[in-house]
Amino acid sequence: MSHAIPSTPRYTTLAEIPKAPRYLLALQSGDTEVARQLLQRLPYETRLWQPEEAAADVSQLNTLLQACHPGTHLCISGDETFIWNCRNQAQAAGLLDAEMSLIKAADGRQAYCVHCSQLQPISQDDEVTCQHCGVQLTIREHFSKRLGAYMGVCLNADQPYGER
């Protein structure tokens, strides 16, 4: 993997979660060790949102957010795709970045194909073929929080679609 650049996302550790009067916790399904530690660390009255499926409909989180007031701190734990979906939902509801802790608990992430504007789940590999337009992509460190995805760009412009 290449070096982190200023747009590469940074995630928090459990110890870095700031003190707040109230917490809301968004947990991706699947019981991880991180989730267990989080539940232990946060106060008993913390509201919890844990969808059943890994690719959850984050708009459900919105219902909980609408009942919250400033002073609420949102902890999001899951893979990068889940984290940024939740974060963008919370931001739209008015929550500021200072009021969220993002805890990366799994490796899943997304790439954005800059040529056809589609998202796709990817592994930690730096090279992947776009499922939508077929271009062979190199995955850069350049990350868009809005899209919750790393930038995928044609790997070899002399052979955009690889050897066929």
Binding site: I5, P6, S7, T8, Y112, V114, S117, R140, E141, H142, S144, K145, R146, L147, M151
Partner: peptide, 17 residues
């Protein structure tokens, strides 16, 4: 560069590369 990808970024973020 791509506006569609960089939209919503801060000054520091879109100059990252």
């Amino acid at each position: 560069w791509s506006l569609k990808f960089d939209a919503g970024m801060s000054f520091t973020e879109w100059h990252a590369p």
